[in-house]
Amino acid sequence: MKKLFLTVMAFVTVGAAVVAQNKAVKASESKVVWKGYKVAGSHEGTINMVAGNLEFKNDVLKGGAFEIDMASIETTDLSGEYKDKLDGHLKSDDFFGVTKYPKANLVMTKVKPKGKNAYDVTGNLTIKGQTHPIQFVMSVYGSKATANLKVDRSKYDVRYGSSSFFDNLQDKVIYDEFDIIADLQF
């Protein structure tokens, strides 16, 4: 009887290890796009992912974490002198202060299935050393995951052009919310 119990426990332990998986995100094959909006239009670009992982149990998403290289932020809708100016401004203390805060990260704290391949995710997003909760939907298909996050930059002390901090900006207002669209390969 004792031998049978030990055999069953060994099977359960091995089985549990097989169904719980931590899958590394392939940073070089993944893409993170940002899009910011202002009264007079919008700009968009990319940010490089440093590392990330997604945690699964029985093929159901349970969590994950990601690190982004803020120093890699660049615009893709401009070229030449205007691109260089905006890229430099985004890296400056007016926006993301990448010299002092070179990385941003997201840690999932709660994941709830929302239907086939979709999950409601709650996490902690850290930008410029400040962490705030964020909610978004993540879809997982095979070895790919996608998410679209709406980030309120005013929570992270990204003040430039924000009507939350400055009056009389008129048509120079840059909206507080910006989008991050992540297409992840793992």
Rank of each mutant, 00 (worst) to 15 (best):
L54K: 00
F136G: 01
K103D: 14
T131C: 05
H89L: 07
N124G: 05
L106D: 09
G52L: 03
D183T: 14
G115I: 12
N53F: 14
T7I: 14
L149W: 06
D77A: 02
K110Q: 13
T146A: 02
K57H: 10
P133L: 06
A104P: 12
V140C: 01
T75F: 05
H43I: 13
N124W: 09
H43E: 10
P102F: 10
G142K: 01
L169E: 04
L184F: 13
G97K: 03
K116I: 14
V8L: 13
D176I: 14
W34E: 02
Q170G: 03
F95T: 09
K172A: 10
V140G: 00
A182Q: 04
N117T: 09
G41D: 02
G142Q: 06
D69F: 11
D152T: 07
D94T: 09
D157K: 01
E44N: 06
A147S: 06
L90K: 00
S162H: 06
V8N: 08
A147W: 03
L169H: 04
T122C: 09
T7E: 13
Y160V: 12
D167S: 08
K128E: 06
K112E: 15
K85M: 12
S28K: 03
L61I: 11
N22E: 15
D94M: 07
G129L: 07
T76Y: 03
E29S: 09
L78V: 06
K128L: 08
G97N: 12
F5L: 13
G64C: 03
L90V: 13
V12M: 09
V121C: 05
D167L: 08
A145Y: 09
A145N: 06
H89E: 08
S72Q: 01
D171H: 01
G45H: 00
K2C: 05
S72A: 08
G64P: 04
A71L: 09
K110W: 14
G123A: 05
T131P: 07
N117F: 10
D167E: 14
L61P: 00
M49L: 15
F136H: 02
A17D: 13
N168P: 05
T146S: 02
T109F: 15
F11A: 15
N58H: 11
L78H: 03
A182K: 00
N148Q: 10
A10T: 12
A27G: 08
K103R: 03
K116R: 01
K23N: 09
S30V: 09
T122Y: 07
Y101G: 03
F165E: 03
Y37H: 09
